[in-house]
Nucleic acid binder design. Structure first.
Lengths: 187, 187
DNA sequence: GCGTCCATGTAAATGGTTACATGATTAT
DNA sequence: ATAATCATGTAACCATTTACATGGACGC
């Protein structure tokens, strides 16, 4: 999803400034699947305003920098629906961590374990964070997305806990490339 | 991972042409996590050759277009190790499908279900394809990556099968906006 | 005094995707 | 005949990331 669609999506839920859009993306259930920096949000909002898909109202604030509140227009809503209606492209998971594990035999001894524990810790923290998230008031689709993410992360944690041993041999594969360290069938 | 690192990675497993590199990326366990088109592979190989990280040997073939076989050099291997040694950035999952589900109440009636079944079908097919993949000769790290992917996909299939009902109410949210499914304050 | 939050934006660098351009061979 | 496989590459387009640039308020 490009930044424009992301912004439109957030704005369907209520008016917001660029700053607030970023925050909402970070806090909502979609955070795990999409994010955007100011460098893409602000230009996107400018473009949307030019295209008449949002309106912009400048609000001077006391003791605060001026705010620009954006509101989605009917044209914007139509554009958003149209984008949503298109067939979604394939999901993609990118993981530099897995890339490392794939080539674990090129790492120094112990490095793979280090990274492994790090990652497992991160995913555990993510799962815990998501478990106690406040889910009241979420639309069904939003709850679905949240739970979808949670179930993936749980699967990752579980898999990692059960497969430490697979990597265990790896550390010295480069030093001692002796036996068949080959494979057990995936269940 | 940028295309250069991807190419180096494949070349650590043996010499190959650009065309073959792409095929190997598509066929190996890493396929689910990384991919690259010719538009990024060929320029990457050119750049790597200029940097002295790979050598290139042109092979004329009978009845076939000429092939350029690339081989990683010591400098290339060193560069690859160095890249691997860096801390991996966070994993990212991008799913336009989930984006749609998040905003399912903007879809026409039935559309969400349609997409749902489509996706579930795709993931089921992926899981089945991975189950009967040939895993002989894979290094531990490579097996780990394969199984990691498989366990995620299984979790997705399971989740979707168990959570059809969550989306069930959604389809008619637009048509029958009876009760409070309203926009609820953005958390 | 220092760090964080609020608030906006630009510009350069990066680099991936898509379409274009070519062309022979082999299998159905 | 027609599609798929083998094989290379360029160029325009598109979009994100990162660094830069600014600056007041508020809590510790």
């Amino acid at each position: 999803m490009d930044a424009k669609t992301l912004c439109l999506g957030v704005l369907t839920q209520g008016d917001a400034s660029g700053y607030e859009i970023k925050k909402q993306l970070e806090e909502g259930p979609l955070a795990h699947f999409y994010r955007a920096g100011y460098g893409s949000i602000y230009p996107a909002l400018t473009a949307l305003a030019e295209a008449g898909q949002v309106t912009c109202t400048e609000m001077a604030q006391e003791k605060r920098p001026g705010k620009k509140i954006y509101r989605i227009t009917d044209a914007g809503l139509a554009a958003f629906r149209k984008t949503l209606g298109k067939n979604p492209s394939e999901d993609r998971i990118r993981s530099e961590y897995l890339f490392m594990m794939f080539f674990a035999h090129f790492l120094e001894t112990g490095r793979a374990d280090e990274i492994f524990e790090d990652y497992l810790g991160q995913y555990r923290a993510t799962v815990e964070g998501m478990c106690c998230a406040d889910l009241d008031g979420l639309a069904p689709g939003q709850l679905f997305v949240h739970d979808f993410g949670l179930s993936i992360y749980r699967a990752i944690v579980e898999f990692m806990e059960n497969n430490r041993h697979v990597l265990a041999d790896t550390a010295d594969a480069d030093a001692a490339p002796t036996r068949e360290q080959s494979v057990g069938a995936a269940q």
